[in-house]
């Protein structure tokens, strides 16, 4: 993680240095393009190496067939699943829990966070409560959720809302508290009424923090949805994994695990793409750097 960060900073610096040298932008872009292709090539090679190694391990009996089928079987199963309806229904079930949960959590956490972030007393009053509720391990709440809501969608949504509310709330509070006082002064000196100050200044300023909160919440929400399905047997991807395992359909079980991973990856990629688009003005997303 930290290594990756260092690399990005380094490459950004190199990029500016090159443009500053007065090289035509096209050449820089082409050089960057060829590097991107090389990076992609390396990534693909890495993945293929792991897959081939796993395949060999399974075929040569290094890993027992009792619990590890050859990767090719898993991929054949994955392809079969992809063209059948049940898989997409299961994904839809997991994702609907995810979306409802995260949506409700955001709907609650954003206004409350704005309130707590802009009022010192309210923030101090609520801090202990937040610090106490936040670290409660989410899984510990499953029995309560089942007791109250049964084993369906509502149970999943409750769990996700309860757990993802905190990271979103904290990010919103930090974002609102971090609005530059000079920006407020500017807005006030130009006579912006409080409402306009909120929508034109506070919200856009806090947006990068809110986006981070939502991205963190998204990952947690998926883990929770799948956990609830696995443990309680609520319908969704998690439950399908348990069913495949108890039917001794190992390729299917692995295929579903891969699907779960892909769903997580897709959600994260989508969040990053949206952030890049909406927050292109923010220093973390800027492609161009002023001289």
């Amino acid at each position: 993680m930290s290594l990756e960060g260092v690399q990005t900073v380094g490459s950004a610096r190199r990029r500016t240095a090159r443009t500053a040298d007065g090289l035509p932008e096209g050449r820089v872009r082409r050089a960057l393009g060829s590097r991107r292709i090389r990076d992609l090539g390396l990534k693909v090679t890495g993945v293929l190496t792991v897959l081939v190694a796993l395949e060999l391990c399974a075929r040569l009996g290094v890993l027992s067939r009792d619990w590890f089928p050859p990767m090719t079987d898993t991929y054949v199963e994955l392809a079969k699943l992809a063209f059948g309806h049940p898989l997409w229904t299961e994904i839809g079930r997991t994702l609907s829990g995810w979306a409802l949960g995260i949506g409700l959590a955001a709907l609650l956490a954003i206004p409350i966070g704005v309130l707590l972030g802009s009022n010192r007393t309210a923030y101090r009053l609520s801090r202990v409560v937040i610090e106490f509720c936040r670290p409660v391990p989410s899984v510990a709440l499953i029995p309560l959720a089942v007791l109250v809501y049964g084993v369906g969608l509502e149970m999943k949504v409750f769990l996700i809302v309860f757990v993802t509310f905190w990271p979103i709330l904290l990010q919103v509070i930090y974002g609102v508290q971090d609005v530059d006082p000079l920006v407020y002064d500017t807005a006030r000196s130009y006579g912006l009424p409080p409402r306009a100050r909120f929508f034109r200044i506070t919200l856009p300023s806090a947006a990068p923090y809110i986006a981070t909160g939502l991205r963190i919440a998204s990952a947690i929400a998926l883990v929770l949805a799948v956990t609830a399905e696995l443990v309680v047997g609520a319908p969704g991807l998690g439950q399908s994994i348990v069913v495949a395992q108890s039917n001794a359909n190992l390729p299917r079980m692995y295929a579903l695990i891969i699907v779960t991973g892909l769903v997580g990856w897709a959600l994260n990629t989508a969040f990053q793409a949206i952030e890049r688009r909406l927050l292109r003005w923010h220093p973390s997303q800027r492609a161009e750097v002023a001289s």
Binding site: D180, L182, V183, D185, T186, S189, Y190, G191, R200, I201, P204, A207, W281, H282
Partner: peptide, 17 residues
């Protein structure tokens, strides 16, 4: 209404978005 203020720190008083 008829007063405008220019601050020293332009990078912070302009809105980056």
């Amino acid at each position: 209404d008829d007063m405008a203020f220019v601050f020293q720190d332009y990078s912070r008083s302009l809105l980056p978005w």
